[in-house]
Structure formats: C-alpha cells, structure tokens
Simulated assay, not measured.
Amino acid sequence: MTVVIRAFRSADARAAAEVLRAGAPYQVVTPELLGWQATSAPAAERHALLVAESAGELLGVARTGLLHESAEPGLGFANVAVHPDRRRRGAGAALLSAAEERLAGLGVLTAYAKVADDPAATALAERRGYRRGRLARLLHLDLAAAELPRVPAPSGVRLASAAELADPRALYEADLDVSRDEPGEVGMDEISYDDWQAAYWGRPDLDRSLTSVALVDDVVVAFSFALTDGRDRYQSGMTGTRRAYRGVGLARPVKLTALRRARHAGYRHAVTSNDANNEAMLAVNRRLGYRVVGGEWRYRRELRR
C-alpha cells in the first residue's frame, strides 16, 4: 500500500480531527481549530499541517512550525499522529521525515516532538534519534459527577470572566509572566501582543465566557483558560498565577469558577495536562477530583549544527 505525504487542504479538516481524537481521545480538537490554524496562525510560527494519505483515506497528521515564543532561535516542532487502526503501514515514519525536511528548510536546528506515552510511539521517536525529555500527565474529570465547591477569592480579589475584560492586554501580561517559569523543555517567554492575540485570543476553541480571571483592580493576577469543542469537552488551556501573587490561594478558586461555568454550559468532560514534576498544580487538580488517564513525552532531536 502506497502512503502519500502532502500538504493539508481545508477539506481534510474533519478527517484530520478524527485522527487526532482517535489517538488522544481526551484531547479537545475540532475541524474548526485545524482549519483556523492552517490559515490564521501567527506568521512567526510558520505553521503548516502535513497529512499521510493512502487510497483516498487520511491515515495521519503532522503539525509543524517554529517555537516562536521562545527567545532561543532555531527551535521548531514536529508533532505526528497516526490513527490507531492505521499504524504499522509506514505513515508515521513518512510524516516525521517530511516534517523534519520542512523544519530544516526553515532553518530549525532543534526539533521538538510531543509523543504519546505509548511503546510504539516512543520507539519510533527513539529510532529516529530523538531523546526523551519531560513527561506531561493528562488528567480527566467527570464534570457531571464532580464536587465543585465555591471557594472565595482572597480579600481584595475579584473573580470575573475573560469576556468581561475591557482590554485583553491585561490577560496577555499575566500569561507572559506565568509562562516565563512554567515547567517545560522550552522557555515560552517571547511573544508580542499582536502574536498573542492571533495565537490565543482569536482561536476558535477559546471560550472567553468560561475563561476565569482573578483581578486586583484592573490587573489580572491569576487565570484559567477554557478551551472547548462546542459539544461536551472542556480543556484547561493553562491555569496560572502571577509570581507576585503566588501562595495566597488563587489557583483553586479561578479553576473551580471555570469548571462550574463549564458544567453549567453543558460540558460533561474536563481535561487538563500538567508537567509530571509540577507537584503544586497536580495537587490542586487531585483535590478537584482529576485522575490521570495518559501521558505525553517531550522529545528532541538536533537536525543540524
């Protein structure tokens, strides 16, 4: 059977989303998101999707681009997914080769890949010379059955939704502050306000009415981003507290507020991911009732020097 690698077309969005959901059933991904990323991602990211096809059937997807939020130059990403029922046909290896070729053409020196905590997936990465890095835990919460108590914010702090913000720049500034010391392989600390708006504020799966923020006067001091599939799945894009306001109990109320809003809106499943060494956030999520349902490794490979 011949596997063909080609560029993503808008007509591929539904099939590509199905491939990604099949490989990571708890993740939030929609055809609308893939179509938007293909046409509206920040120019600095140089985002592109590649697909593996055989006899008219879409077998797998590679998401590629530059890690433009890092101050370190020459970093890119190549995230490959193949439908679980269509593996062992060479689609994954062919997609990874094409993704690496594209990144090399963009001047990428180091390629990063998110790899499912699955023996077949990690074996492919390691055969291609990728080195294992950090592990992220994927967690799930049954929103219909979860206990979501109302936890008041500390004195002087007001809880609101992102939709109520007069200017999203306040959320951008908080996000940038939190991201500077978020656990991970790559420092995500260099993104302009315009690129942030394009990459996050404008994405179609961001629900601003469910995204929770904690305000001191007009300053966002903590937040919990809400990503949804418009049907039954809700994902915490990131929950964080600005460094100057940590240790006073903000993460739990902002996250609980977002979760209660999501349940009221009809969402039944909540998912999130945490760095396996981020014990503080893992503890918050365990108290909320989240349970580990999977994992994802970060791998890296030097393409050229």
Results as ranks from 00 to 15, higher is better:
Arg180Val: 02
Arg231Asn: 07
Leu215Thr: 14
Ser212Cys: 11
Arg233Met: 14
Val219Ile: 04
Ala166Trp: 02
Ser224Lys: 10
Asp229Leu: 09
Ser179Phe: 09
Ile191Ser: 01
Ala166Cys: 06
Gly237Asp: 04
Asp189Trp: 03
Glu185Asn: 06
Ala166Phe: 01
Gly184Trp: 02
Ala170Gln: 09
Asp205Tyr: 14
Gly230Gln: 15
Asp167Phe: 05
Leu210His: 07
Val186Met: 03
Val221Glu: 02
Leu215Val: 15
Asp218Pro: 12
Leu227Asn: 07
Leu227Pro: 00
Arg208Pro: 05
Val216His: 02
Pro204Ala: 04
Asp181Met: 04
Arg233Glu: 04
Ser212Asn: 07
Leu206Ala: 11
Asp167Cys: 09
Arg203Pro: 02
Pro204Lys: 03
Glu164Tyr: 04
Pro204Cys: 07
Arg180Met: 01
Ser224Met: 05
Asp189Gln: 09
Asp167Asn: 13
Ser236Ala: 13
Val186Lys: 04
Val186Ile: 14
Asp218Trp: 05
Asp181Asn: 08
Glu182Leu: 03
Tyr172Asn: 03
Ala198Arg: 14
Val219Ala: 12
Gly202Gln: 14
Glu182Asp: 05
Leu165Met: 04
Arg203Leu: 09
Glu173Ser: 08
Pro168Thr: 08
Ala166His: 00
Leu165Asn: 05
Thr211Gln: 09
Ser212Tyr: 00
Arg208Gln: 10
Phe225Leu: 11
Val220Leu: 08
Glu182Cys: 00
Asp205Cys: 13
Trp201Phe: 10
Arg233Tyr: 00
Val213Thr: 11
Arg231Val: 15
Glu190Ala: 10
Pro183Thr: 08
Ser179Gly: 06
Ala198Thr: 15
Val221Arg: 08
Val221Met: 06
Phe223Pro: 02
Ala166Asp: 10
Glu173Val: 00
Gly202His: 14
Glu182Asn: 06
Glu173Trp: 02
Val178Gln: 02
Asp189Ser: 10
Met238Lys: 13
Pro204Glu: 08
Pro183Tyr: 01
Ser224Phe: 00
Asp218Met: 10
Asp232Arg: 15
Leu215Pro: 13
Val216Gln: 15
Asp177Thr: 04
Arg169Thr: 08
Leu215Asn: 15
Asp229Glu: 09
Tyr172Leu: 06
Phe225Ser: 02
Ala174Pro: 03
Glu173Met: 01
Ala214Thr: 11
Thr211Leu: 06
Asp205Trp: 15
Gln235Pro: 11
Val221Asn: 14
Ala222Met: 12
Gln197His: 14
Thr211Val: 01
Ile191Thr: 09
Ala226Tyr: 07
Tyr193Thr: 05
Thr228Lys: 03
Gln235Cys: 13
Val220Ser: 01
Thr211Ser: 10
Ala174Trp: 00
Leu165Arg: 08
Val219Tyr: 01
Ala166Asn: 07
Asp217Ile: 04
Leu176Ser: 07
Glu190Arg: 11
Pro168Gly: 13
Phe225Cys: 05
Ala199Leu: 10
Leu206Asn: 10
Gly230Trp: 05
Ala170Lys: 13
Leu171Tyr: 08
Ala226Pro: 01
Ser224Tyr: 11
Ser209Glu: 14
Thr211Lys: 03
Gln235Leu: 13
Glu185Ile: 06
Glu164His: 06
Gly187Ser: 15
Trp201Cys: 01
Arg231Ser: 10
Ser179Asn: 13
Glu182Pro: 00
Arg203Met: 12
Ser236Gln: 11
Val220Asn: 06
Leu165Glu: 08
Asp217Pro: 09
Arg180Asn: 01
Gly237Leu: 05
Val219Trp: 06
